[in-house]
Design a protein around this nucleic acid. Structure first.
Lengths: 231, 231
DNA sequence: GACGAATTAGACAAGAATGTCTAAAAAATT
DNA sequence: AATTTTTTAGACATTCTTGTCTAATTCGTC
């Protein structure tokens, strides 16, 4: 075997050393940056948490700022990938639309918002988004941009199939995500966790409201007439 | 006049020196803490931004952590006060419910979320909420707790008066706030501003969806029937 | 086993920030 | 005007952090 491991891209410098070590540094750095903020993060702490010497951190990433940028890029990528994975489980042919959407909403929460990467990314954006917006341009373009469109497309298809009554699928997608987050936001801020039941109940409430707004009007009318008859 | 300026509460140490200077220090500290985070904030910079010598900062607040706590307390109070001010403009006797709620939503945004204090408080919570939750206990109790209840009470009254159809007013209030924020969140993260028209359009979209979910069912039914007839 | 690359521990200089102290200046009060 | 309080500028010791350098050591590969 020849020693040229990266024959195709000699300009993109190959990650020197063990990729595993490189990744463990990024993971540790992500945790530390999120806990302490950029200024408060300590390279020694990152090294210790990664089980690596400080010099190795510098060897791999050269600089605190470069390390931060690498962390952002890494988490952005993982987060977007996960978002699309969850999105691929959207109920395109729902049996019970309300139940299926509720399960989907829970997956969305657990996978993207409540998960480790989601928390990290959100904290990083809040902390440094205003100061270094260029670091998050990729996220904005590939993240919300594409995810919202994709989700909107799914809703549009449901509407076309007669399961929903939607004027503006993009708006519906954004509002769906917002509703799904309603009860999770405050506990999220303080690092608290919700039990499975609470999460599920919250998702159910969000979906119920969403369907009240975007469910087929015929059904809503039928419900209303039925109630009116009973009254 | 006797020299006892604070006869009722001798234990709560009176703010020494000019209150104006004290406030300007807190304002400057708030700005710096929000920009740079707690660890990155520099007392010299706070002093300079407040137009005060560094020693004066220490005289007034003793310590970086105490200064931070004072900032949090101050902003919390102002933010909550403003929230209740806006809340007092809730349309209790709406002429045009949709229009009135839209205007109310815009006031809410401009006053509480988009305003200086709101931004500051949110950033502080995001940055330090997980590490120092005790600092924000007051906010949680007096802020979301009371504001949500108050808003829920207003919605309940509207429902009682026959303008809305709401099962759970607390939930409706939380969802209203979430919907109102949908389009503002991302630009907010990066310090961007929305034009008056965009804000107003966003509020209108939020209110329209809210009313589709919580408007009187009779109206929804009437709409549906009308459409059915036309079809 | 031998070679080269990667890693480690630790020392090190340079810079920055906190919090204290002092003497002089400014402001307010009487 | 005299006095007391507050503010100021600057020096200062201390601590912490970054980023570099070096020599020793480990690891992977041939």
């Amino acid at each position: 075997m020849v020693c040229m491991k990266f024959p195709t891209s000699p300009d993109i410098l190959p990650p020197r050393g063990h990729p595993a070590k490189r990744q463990s540094i990024i993971d540790a750095a992500a945790a530390v940056f999120c806990r302490e903020g950029f200024a408060g993060a300590n390279i020694d702490l990152v090294a210790a948490e990664a089980g690596v010497s400080r010099q190795t951190v510098y060897n791999h990433h050269g600089d605190k700022e470069k390390l931060f940028a690498a962390v952002v890029a890494d988490i952005t990528e993982r987060c977007n990938a996960r978002a699309f994975t969850v999105l691929s489980t959207f109920p395109d042919n729902p049996e019970d639309l309300e139940a299926d959407l509720t399960v989907f909403a829970m997956r969305l929460n657990k996978g993207c918002i409540w998960g480790r990467d989601g928390r990290f990314l959100a904290k990083l954006i809040h902390a440094e988004g205003e100061r270094h917006p260029e670091l998050f341009e990729t996220w904005r373009r590939e993240g919300p941009g594409r995810v919202w469109s994709a989700l909107a497309a799914r809703f549009a298809r449901l509407a076309f199939a007669g399961h929903l009554d939607i004027d503006d699928p993009d708006l519906a997608a954004r509002q769906f995500l917002a509703l799904v987050n309603v009860d999770l936001h405050i506990p999220w801020l303080f690092g608290e966790t919700l039990s499975e039941e609470e999460q599920s109940a919250s998702a159910a409430r969000a979906v119920r409201t969403f369907l009240r707004a975007y469910g087929r009007k015929c059904e809503a009318a039928a419900d209303a007439l039925e109630e009116a008859h009973q009254a």
